[in-house]
Structure formats: C-alpha cells, structure tokens
Design a binder for these strands. Structure first.
Length: 114
DNA sequence: TTTGTGACCGTAA
DNA sequence: ATTACGGCCACAA
C-alpha cells in the first residue's frame, strides 16, 4: 500500500483531537501533512473501520454537519457519542462558529505527527 | 483506459 | 440561507 503512511498519519492526527472537541476532514488532512485531501480522510475512515482509540466521531464536515445521512445508523452513533462528550448537536450539525471551535484545533494541536 | 463515486472543501452566484 | 462548480485522488467497474 502506497498510502499506508498517509493513513497512519491521518489516524494519528485524529487521535489528537481532545474529547469534547471536533475537527473537520480538511483540518485533519492539513494537520496530517496532506493539504487539500479531505476526501482521503473520509476514505481512510471508511476503509479502516475505526475502533475506539480513534475518535472518528469527532470528525465533521467543514460546515459542522455530520457527514452521514441523518437517521442512518452511523449518524445516530456519532451523534450519541458527541452528545456524551458534551458536544452540542442541533439539526444535524455542530454550531462550530457559534462556539468558536473550528480554529481552536490549530492552537490545541500544534506539534504534530509521527 | 475512461468513468463514476465518495464520511470533502473553498469560492462564487 | 442554498446551489453550482471545480479541485481533490484512490478505487472499482
């Protein structure tokens, strides 16, 4: 696999998201040293059936929406996990801007990877 | 080889 | 607030 390094970087970066916080696919890609490749993050998660050490539920779209179809199994699970961590989810999205969260991740995780 | 398909994103109507 | 479009790129058909 040519991408196993990239995937490892991605999963590693996702592990750095603190509980109660969220990050977008694009942010993860950037932090993992893969600028512009948000789709790869999604593909990585889809293909590597993530287990708890990888907090996949803290990864959202850039606009704060959960990436799953509302009502789907995965959607419900993600929503539940977020709420358990105290993250507000209303109308299928986390109000990032309203909480000033989106940019915080760059501050919280500066020194990175692997 | 080409085409379609995503757990996506930024910009511009 | 939406929609459209172009970028993005590994994968499968």
């Amino acid at each position: 696999m040519p991408n196993e390094r990239a995937y490892a970087q991605i999963l590693h970066t996702i592990r750095l998201i603190p509980a109660g916080n969220v990050a977008s696919y694009g942010q993860i890609a950037d932090l993992a040293g893969l600028p512009g490749r948000a789709r790869m993050v999604g593909r990585c998660l889809r293909e590597s059936s993530p287990v708890p050490p990888v907090p996949w539920h803290r990864v959202l779209r850039a606009d704060g929406k959960l990436a799953f179809p509302p009502g789907s199994d995965s959607y419900q699970q993600q929503r539940t996990r977020l709420v358990e961590e105290g993250v507000t989810v209303m109308n299928h999205r986390v109000p990032l801007k309203e909480f000033g969260w989106s940019p915080d991740l760059y501050t919280l995780m500066h020194e990175i990877p692997y």
